[in-house]
Amino acid sequence: MSAALALGDDALVLSHRLGEWAGHAPVLEEEVALANIALDLLGQARILLSLAGDEDELAYLREERAFRNVQLVEQPNGDFAHTIARQLYFSAYQRLLYEQLASGEGAFAGLAAKAVKEVAYHQDHAEHWTLRLGDGTDESHDRMQRAVDGLWRFTGELFEPVEGVDIDWQALRSGWLESVPAVLERATLTLPTGPQSGAWTAGAGRQGIHTEPFGRMIAEMQHLHRSHPGASW
């Protein structure tokens, strides 16, 4: 079930990153909002990983190179603008993906039908904040522009077909390229012009090639579990 791993790892890793905001959010209301999104994603991750095996073994006992998430979701939180840009890019992708899966008959249809409602809200949240940061103050505009520029090169990977995920990838790509630039424009932001992938092939995350911050992230995530082999929690 490499497809369940890919989608499950996306959700798990992004949930973990959002969880790092706890106690650090810019305003209390946003503590609650970010935690809601993180909890939705963690719920999705647990269902998906359970399709592929034991959720905890998969989350805690795999080496970095065995994770199949896209590199976008593992990128550090950065400032609030970076987190929102990451949410904008990823939620647009996940929504298009789940919409197609939900209307199909594959193994993920049931999960996707439920998750698509959650993800629609994540996208709504990201879009509202993109508008407010992009079209807020000069400082917020600059920060948001830097964030959408900086993360742009991780977006190409989103459109690389995942084995076992039977959807129209071309439609997903064109849907994404319609919705995201439209939001950026409304937010008075400039559409990034750089390449959508780095010097290494897009799709690397799906092959287990990750970025440096990811190793530290899972070292922290797995440390306690690995320190007590065989223990129950």
């Binding site: 305003v27 209390l28 209301e29 909002a33 709504d124 509202h128």
Partner: peptide
């Protein structure tokens, strides 16, 4: 009650909280 910059965000914050 809660704080929000505008009505749209107030609705969303209310939903979340």
């Amino acid at each position: 009650s809660l704080h929000a910059p505008d009505a749209e965000m107030a609705l969303r914050n209310a939903r979340d909280l």
